[in-house]
Computed example of a mutant assay.
Amino acid sequence: MRNIIRAQMQLGECDISAIAFDCFSRDDILRLLRGLRHIYTTEPLREAVFAILADVLPVRADGEAFVSADTGRPGMSQWRILVLGTLRQGLNADYDRVQEFANQHRLVRQMLGHSDWSDEDRYSLQTLKDNLRLFTPEVLERINQCRCRQGGTRPCQTPS
């Protein structure tokens, strides 16, 4: 069973639309995170992107069909696959670097839906490999085309 994103925020989590970015930073990570926040906060765009991600399912162990999105144990949410997959593809990063971002980078962890002070969840290297191998450059290109049809990203704005 693969969720899109948790509907209910946990204690200590920050709403993705309220994450504060340094608007003067030219770092490539922040540019990617701002684009992801735009996807998250623009409902028609978010729905279109998650429809694309619904097609991203692993193949069953027998190799004959895709796993069911509705049954089984919970996998990594589509939002987390989108965030980490975008960082991996956008930065041309290896899995070790993505693991470091997912476990140590404060803004990335906020974007993944983790709280700042009480969340001890960590991503293993194998979990990242198993989930992010599904997020191919072709999937990213489909998302990029969808984003372009929806009207691009807006400039950096600090939440009020």
Rank of each mutant, 00 (worst) to 15 (best):
H38P: 00
D27E: 11
G152S: 04
R142L: 07
D130P: 07
D116Y: 13
R133Q: 13
R80S: 13
N131M: 00
T127N: 08
R34I: 04
R80W: 01
D94V: 14
E13M: 05
K129F: 13
L36K: 12
E13D: 05
D22F: 10
T153L: 11
S77T: 06
R106L: 14
D27G: 09
W117E: 13
R109P: 03
L53W: 01
L107K: 10
W79M: 10
L132K: 03
R31Q: 15
L107H: 08
D119H: 03
R149K: 10
L91R: 14
Q104H: 14
I81G: 08
A93G: 04
A51H: 13
L107E: 14
Y123V: 01
Q145K: 12
G35T: 02
K129G: 07
K129Q: 14
Q145M: 09
I16S: 05
L57V: 12
Q126I: 09
G63V: 03
F66M: 08
L128V: 09
G63A: 05
R73H: 09
F21K: 12
L132P: 07
S118W: 05
Q104P: 05
P155T: 05
A51E: 13
P137T: 01
A20F: 14
I16Q: 04
A65Y: 08
L82I: 07
G35W: 07
V56A: 09
E141N: 04
A65P: 03
R34E: 07
F66W: 10
S25N: 00
I143W: 01
R133A: 09
D55H: 11
L36Y: 12
L132I: 01
V49L: 07
C23N: 10
N144P: 00
I52K: 03
E100N: 01
E13W: 00
E100D: 12
L125G: 10
R122Q: 15
E100W: 14
E47C: 08
Q99F: 05
C146V: 03
L107I: 08
P159T: 13
S77Q: 06
